[in-house]
Design a binder for these strands. Structure first.
Length: 602
DNA sequence: GTTACACCTG
DNA sequence: CAGGTGTAAC
C-alpha cells in the first residue's frame, strides 16, 4: 500500500546491527574448484556415437537422452545420508486419535532435533556441502560432455574432431558449461532463475560467449542439421541446467553448509508455475544487502505516533530482498546412505531429492519420488528416506488414513486425494523433465509447513487466512487446515508476547526508565530466544523489520507495565492492536510451495 | 452461526 | 503445539 511509508527508523539500532557474515562465494568458488574430471559417470557414454553419420541424428539424440537419464540414474544411487532410525514410526495407521497423539509428540521432536544448532551440527553441513557441490559438478560435467558429443557428432562434416578437434567445442562450450546453470540459450527461465547472485552474474557473462559459440558451431553444420543441433543442445542443456538450478535452489534455501546467501532471485526457479520474474537487475540478486536500506514496510518507530506508521498489511509485491541469508551453520545432516532401490521413473527427482535430502535438514526436504512415482514401492521409499523413513510413508498409504489429528473434519479431505494425485500425475507428465514437482497440493500440514509458518512470523504476526493461502500454495486449505494454521500463529504470538512481557518486566526491574533504551538487537537475549523459537536451525536470518517490531513491542510492554496498566485485565489489547498493524510484507520466495519445505510428504 | 482471537491447560 | 473455552466482531 504505502511502501514509502516505510520510514526506516534511524533510531533503531537494530537496523544498524547488520554485521552479518557474508559467505557469499564460498560455494561458488568451490564449484569451480571442484575437479572437472569426474569420469565415472561418463564412462557410460559410448564414445562411438560420436562418429555417427548424419542420418543417425535421431538415434543419436535418443542416445543422448538415454545417457542423460543414465547419468541421472547413476547419481541417484550415490551415497545418501543415513540416519539410523531416530524417528519412530510417525503415523499410526489405525487410530486417528492415536495418530494425533503421536504426531503431537513425535513430529515436533523430529523437526526440532536436527534443526537444533550446536556443536553436533557440524557434521551435516560439512558433508552436505561438498557432496552437493560434487553433484553439481557432475551435472555440469555431464552437460559439457553432452555438448561436446553433440559438437563432435556434427564434427565429421566440419573440421576433424580429433583429440584436438574437441577443442572446437570445448573452448567456448567449456566456458559456458563450467557454469552450467548460467547457460540456457533458449532463456526459458534463464533470466529469472539464477540460483545465486553469482549464477546470475555468470549467466550474463556467458550469454556473450554463447552467441559466439553457437555461430562458430553453426558454421560446421548444414543449415538443417545446425538448427537441429541447436535445438538438441538447448533441450539437453535445459534439462540439465534446470536440474542444476533446482538443486541449487534447494540447496541454497536449505544450505547444507556455508554455501551462500541469496536473495529471492531464484524464486522463480521453483517449477510450480508461480515463478515470478526476477526483478530486472539490481537489487534482486545482490543480496547481502544492507538491510537497513530495505524497503521494510511498516517500520515501526519506537515512539512514533502509531498513526504515522504504515499500517499496511497488504501484499504489495515485495521487492524485499528477504535476505534469506543462510547462515552457515553447522548442521548435523543425516549421514549418507546409498539407496539402491530407486523407482525407475523418478530418478531425476530422486537425484535431487537426495541432493536435497542430504541437506542439513533432511527431514525438510523430502523425497519427491512419491510425486513422480505414485506407485513407488514402499520398500524403496523407506530406503530412500533413512532420516525419516517412517515419516515418509508412501503417499498411497498415507492417504488411506487420516494423517492429521483432525479426526472428523479431516475425513472430508479424503475425497480430495484422488484428484490431488491426478493433478500431480498430470503435472508430472507435463513437467517430465523437471527435477521435482513442486506443485502438488497437500491435504494436510506437515512440519515443513510449520517451519515455514514460523519463519513467516518474522514478517507477519497476524496473517489473514487469505495470506496464508497465498503463501502455502501447496496446501489444500479447508476449515481444518486453516484453523490449524491460524492456531499456529496464535501460538507464535502467544510465545512472542510472553517473551516481550517478560523482558519488559525484567527491564523495569533492572531499572530501565527510558523505553527507547530497549532495542532488540540480534545479539540480545530476547532475540535469541525468539529466534530459537521461530527459527531453530537458525537457517534463516530474521529480517531487520522483525527486530524493529520486536523492539517496538518490547517498548510498548515496557510502557504499559511501567504505567501500571497491567492491572487492567485487558491491558495487552492495545499492544496487540498496535502490533497487528505492523505486519510486513512477506517475501515472495515464501510463496514457493517448495520453500523451504519439500518435506517428507512431498 | 461463523470466525478469529486470547487465554489456559496438558 | 493442540485442545478447550470465553469473548467479540461480522
Amino acid at each position: 500500500m504505502d511502501p514509502n511509508s516505510s520510514l526506516h527508523s534511524p533510531p533503531s539500532q537494530a537496523c544498524l546491527h547488520l554485521a552479518q557474515p557474508c559467505i557469499e562465494d564460498g560455494r561458488s568458488l568451490s564449484l569451480q574448484e571442484q575437479g572437472r574430471d569426474s569420469p565415472f559417470l561418463w564412462r557410460q557414454v559410448p564414445s562411438s556415437s560420436i562418429a555417427d553419420p548424419d542420418w543417425f541424428w535421431d538415434e543419436h539424440i535418443q542416445a543422448k537422452r538415454a545417457r542423460v537419464e543414465t547419468i541421472v540414474r547413476g547419481m541417484s544411487v550415490s551415497p545418501n545420508p543415513l540416519v539410523p532410525g531416530s524417528t519412530p514410526a510417525r503415523d499410526s495407521l489405525c487410530c486417528p486419535e492415536k495418530s494425533r497423539e503421536r504426531k503431537r509428540k513425535q513430529s515436533l521432536p523430529v523437526q526440532q532435533g536436527p534443526l537444533k544448532p550446536g556443536p553436533a551440527g557440524d557434521r551435516g553441513s560439512r558433508k552436505g556441502g561438498p557432496w552437493v557441490r560434487e553433484q553439481l559438478h557432475l551435472l555440469k560435467q555431464q552437460l559439457r560432455h553432452l555438448q561436446e558429443h553433440i559438437l563432435q557428432a556434427a564434427g565429421p562434416r566440419a573440421t576433424a574432431q580429433g583429440p584436438g578437434g574437441s577443442e572446437t567445442g570445448r573452448g567456448p562450450l567449456g566456458v559456458k558449461q563450467r557454469n552450467g546453470w548460467g547457460s540456457r540459450p533458449w532463456g526459458v527461465d534463464s533470466d529469472q532463475h539464477q540460483g545465486s547472485s553469482r549464477g546470475r552474474f555468470v549467466a550474463e557473462k556467458h550469454r556473450v560467449c554463447e552467441g559466439k559459440t553457437q555461430s562458430e558451431e553453426s558454421r560446421f553444420l548444414p543449415s538443417g542439421a545446425g538448427a537441429l543441433l541447436e535445438i538438441l543442445k538447448k533441450e539437453l542443456t535445459g534439462a540439465v541446467s534446470q536440474a542444476v538450478d533446482s538443486v541449487l535452489q534447494k540447496v541454497l534455501l536449505n544450505p547444507p553448509g556455508p554455501l551462500t546467501q541469496l536473495g529471492r532471485s531464484f524464486q522463480g526457479l521453483v517449477p510450480d508455475g508461480k515463478s515470478e520474474p526476477c526483478p530486472p537487475e539490481g537489487g534482486a540478486c545482490k543480496d547481502p544487502l544492507p538491510l537497513a536500506a530495505l524497503p521494510t514496510r511498516a517500520q515501526p518507530q519506537a515512539g512514533l505516533p502509531l498513526g504515522t506508521l504504515s499500517l499496511a498489511k497488504p501484499l504489495d509485491p515485495p521487492n524485499y530482498p528477504v535476505s534469506p541469508r543462510m547462515i552457515p551453520k553447522p548442521y548435523q545432516g543425516p549421514p549418507a546412505n546409498c539407496p539402491l532401490a530407486v523407482p525407475p521413473h523418478s530418478q531425476e527427482g530422486q537425484v535431487l531429492t537426495q541432493l536435497l535430502g542430504r541437506g542439513p535438514r533432511g527431514h525438510w526436504h523430502g523425497s519427491l519420488s512419491q510425486d513422480s512415482s505414485p506407485q513407488s514401492q514402499p520398500s524403496s521409499e523407506v530406503a530412500l528416506r533413512p532420516w525419516g523413513a517412517a515419516k515418509m510413508r508412501p503417499l498411497a498409504l498415507r492417504q488411506q488414513q487420516c494423517p492429521w489429528p483432525f479426526t472428523s473434519t479431516c475425513l472430508e479431505r479424503l475425497p480430495l486425494i484422488p484428484s490431488v494425485k491426478t493433478e500431480q500425475d498430470g503435472l508430472q507428465a507435463v513437467t517430465n523433465a523437471l527435477p521435482f514437482p513442486s506443485s502438488h497440493i497437500q491435504e494436510g500440514l506437515n512440519p515443513g509447513h510449520l517451519k515455514k509458518a514460523k519463519l513467516m512470523f518474522f514478517f507477519t504476526r497476524y496473517p489473514s487466512s487469505n495470506l496464508l493461502k497465498a503463501y502455502f500454495p501447496d496446501v489444500q486449505f479447508n476449515r481444518c487446515v486453516t484453523s490449524q494454521m491460524i492456531k499456529w500463529f496464535s501460538n507464535f504470538r502467544e510465545f512472542y508476547y510472553i517473551q516481550m512481557e517478560k523482558f519488559a518486566r525484567q527491564a523495569i526491574s533492572d531499572g530501565v526508565t527510558n523505553p527507547k533504551m530497549l532495542v532488540v538487537l540480534r545479539d540480545s537475549e530476547l532475540f535469541r530466544t525468539l529466534n530459537m523459537h521461530y527459527n531453530k536451525g537458525n537457517d534463516f536470518e530474521a529480517p531487520d523489520c522483525f527486530l524493529e517490531i520486536a523492539s517496538l513491542t518490547l517498548q510498548e510492554f515496557f510502557r504499559a507495565v511501567s504505567a501500571g496498566k497491567d492491572s487492567d485485565p485487558s491491558w495487552k489489547k492495545p499492544i496487540y492492536k498496535i502490533i497487528s498493524k505492523l505486519d510486513s510484507d512477506i517475501p515472495e520466495i515464501f510463496k514457493s510451495s517448495s520453500y523451504p519445505q519439500e518435506l517428507f510428504r512431498n
